[in-house]
Nucleic acid binder design. Structure first.
Lengths: 198, 198
DNA sequence: GTCTATATTGTGATAGAC
DNA sequence: GTCTATCACAATATAGAC
């Protein structure tokens, strides 16, 4: 995975533009201009636009999924790992807030890609679901289906970033710093919220 | 707003393709082919691709926002309207699951559009936030900031649809019917969940 | 590895016949 | 309203000089 400086600049510009404008919305020329290099170098390093996009998409996935995947597999109980998952996911989103919408848009266009991605990345919710179920069985009363609990958890962590422009404008009058502060707050707030619907 | 049959077919095909592939990813030719008409008719009816996209985007927004906006303004207390909002939003999503990702992607590419959209659609969270606050003050103890409550509510309603392919594959083994059933369940489940973090 | 030049196809848009 | 023909341009990609 050793990359030349040129290669890194291509990836950096491709990320920036693909994240913002999508695959079809970003031309090879746009990316080359942003990187300050000749357009044909993109073909030299990545052969085709599809392959360049694929490199960006994979990198985006790998900053998105592993935190989730590793915690799904972890030895900890759900109550233990849940706050860590929240912190990991929110921190990841804060670093690159455009990833969720980029990834979800691509998967929405090409849902057929999901099975292979799950296989490749070793995503298996079975362990986490089972642990959650056994944990619920210790407490009396009715409980949410474990799948619904995890869907809620992911929704609360990820959606506010996918909807960033909407929330910033509606709830923070366009004040970006206020939006960011509120997102950081959520690392502290969400564990409590989640506890209440386990 | 009376439309010829041709005009309706154009809009229907444009929605289908723009939702799936985005503006740049769908050509005028693609849309015309899907509608089964000559390509130049798109220009005849909508002049430019931008104007056609705009028509689709506005229509998507108008199926998305008003339920939210009207309830934000309603006379009901938060506890009263919250379950109705959940039902309205989820029903809307079930009818056209691709709208959220489409709208969020466009607003993520062009966040500058938000202020005008908010103005045009008369979205003002002030009333809802105030009502929620006064409602919280009746109960003892600490409470979530009202903005965080509403962000949570929207997250829980909308995200599972934006992430549809991911959730369907991971939690329902690709079984679409099971996914839909779970989403319908959420109309019943979410009010209880939300009650617990007001 | 990096450039220029070029091949080829696709795209949005319009003019004008019917 | 609907078609054919056409324009101007942008796109990806490759060949070949340096």
């Amino acid at each position: 995975m050793l990359q030349t400086e040129t290669e890194q600049r291509i990836i950096a510009s491709a990320e920036k533009l693909f994240y913002r404008k999508g695959k079809a919305g970003s031309s090879m020329q746009d990316i080359a201009d942003d990187a300050g290099i000749n357009r044909t170098l993109l073909n030299y390093y990545f052969r085709t636009k599809d392959q360049l996009f694929e490199a960006v998409f994979r990198k985006a996935l790998s900053g998105f999924v592993p935190g989730l995947a590793s915690l799904l597999k972890s030895d900890m109980s759900f109550r233990e790992y849940m706050p860590r998952l929240i912190e990991t996911v929110i921190d990841t989103m804060l670093e690159n807030p455009q990833i969720p919408i980029f990834v979800l848009q691509e998967l929405s266009s090409n849902p057929d890609r999901m099975p292979q991605i799950i296989k490749e990345m070793g995503i298996d919710p079975a362990v986490a679901l089972k642990k959650l179920e056994s944990e619920q069985s210790k407490a009396p009363g009715a409980h949410l289906a474990p799948r619904q609990v995890i869907i809620n958890l992911l929704s609360l962590c990820i959606f506010p970033f996918a909807a960033r422009p909407v929330l910033t404008e509606i709830f923070f009058n366009g004040d970006n710093a206020a939006y960011i502060a509120a997102m950081k707050d959520r690392k502290r707030l969400l564990p409590q919220v989640v506890e209440n619907f386990i």
